[in-house]
Design a protein around this nucleic acid. Structure first.
Lengths: 197, 197
DNA sequence: TTTTTTGTTGATTGACGAGTCAATAAACTT
DNA sequence: AAGTTTATTGACTCGTCAATCAACAAAAAA
């Protein structure tokens, strides 16, 4: 049975299974056994490829963040002008791929992981910085000196909406979520453009 | 050594120790032993008084939420008019007592707990509902039919700011936190509506 | 005084889970 | 064909931890 070149396939399956299991159970207390079973292999194999549970968790986190990053980049590539680019970032943040129940659940737990595991914290910090920088690029022309404050508000708001989605009894489609963020933006820009400075 | 009337004292000490330990370690993976040691007693005694780790966690959660509720009620009692009352809620939300590093860390982990433990979810839902209702009372006169949307945004934003504080390398004093939320409010309501006491 | 209630803990149990190991098998290399 | 590398797993070790138990201590009640 053993075919060659299994490593990347197995690793991808494990990373996926990790996200699903963490999201489904809503906790980091998932056993390597659960993850491996969902990925269709033995626990020993999971350890063989990742060495430790922590490494597997970090890989899963990296994957979620890189998917998100890719989606943002894609949306940005097709958008011209600060307002359109801002919209693109927000649309990507609440796209069906990123706003899936298990992904949001995993996201929340990665925040928890970041409290204990320095590497996890590093990853989250990078994500936050990149988001802020992307937002700032769009906001500077739109909000002037208030760009920084608006970017901070937007970042926190996005995280907050994710947090509430994680707790929501039934998954939403993300439309209501974007709506909240867009309302904030409209308010800030409508007023900020006038009162800038 | 056994004095009488220890039960409430021991329970309070355990609840406090639970919050501190969860906040400090940034995780629900705290042993009853750690908590009991910090509270100055044996693990057996902790089990004697609470029966189970889960019950202890729930008691700690109830305590955090009730402290917060009390602070909000106190601040509301001293405030007249929607704008002032809105300010009171926000001030209470980021008061030194509630915005302490370990409390915020515990808060985040209670969100995680709520994913698995129905009772924990119930508690959080009650908190969210009460907050929303309080916000709505203030917002209806100020934001009219948009009150609902603004309340949802505010709720999410507060949680988001908490979330970011949990991840922050160094604890902030809460002033910057309120600032973000106030900026949101100002934007949504239009300037001047919010600068009461 | 005896009994009961309340407080308290060290020691133990029982379960569970991360990580390791030895062994097996199929493919590639020489 | 012999040897090497990659894939794969069942069984095992070792530690940890929630929960229980048996016992002891002191105050209150009888």
């Amino acid at each position: 049975m053993p075919k060659l070149g299994m490593e990347p396939i197995r690793k991808a399956a494990l990373v996926n299974a990790t996200i699903v299991e963490i999201g489904r159970s809503g906790s980091l207390d998932v056993t390597v056994g659960q993850i491996a079973r969902r990925a269709g292999m033995s626990t020993a194999l999971a350890h063989h490829y990742f060495g430790s549970k922590e490494a597997l968790f970090l890989a899963a986190m990296r994957h979620v963040l890189s998917l998100y990053g890719a989606e943002v980049r894609g949306a940005l590539g097709a958008s011209v002008g600060p307002a359109a680019r801002l919209n693109a970032i927000l649309r990507a943040s609440f796209s069906p791929a990123n706003f899936r129940a298990d992904v949001v659940g995993a996201w929340l737990n990665f925040y928890v992981l970041a409290q204990t595991v320095p590497d996890a914290r590093r990853l989250l910090t990078i994500y936050q910085r990149r988001l802020r920088s992307n937002l700032m690029d769009c906001l500077r022309p739109l909000a002037g000196r208030r760009a920084g404050a608006v970017a901070d508000g937007l970042g926190a708001l996005i995280d907050g909406v994710y947090l509430r989605e994680a707790l929501a009894p039934k998954p939403s489609d993300g439309v209501a979520a974007v709506q909240i963020v867009l309302a904030y933006l409209a308010a800030e820009l409508g007023q900020g453009a006038v009162h800038a400075g």
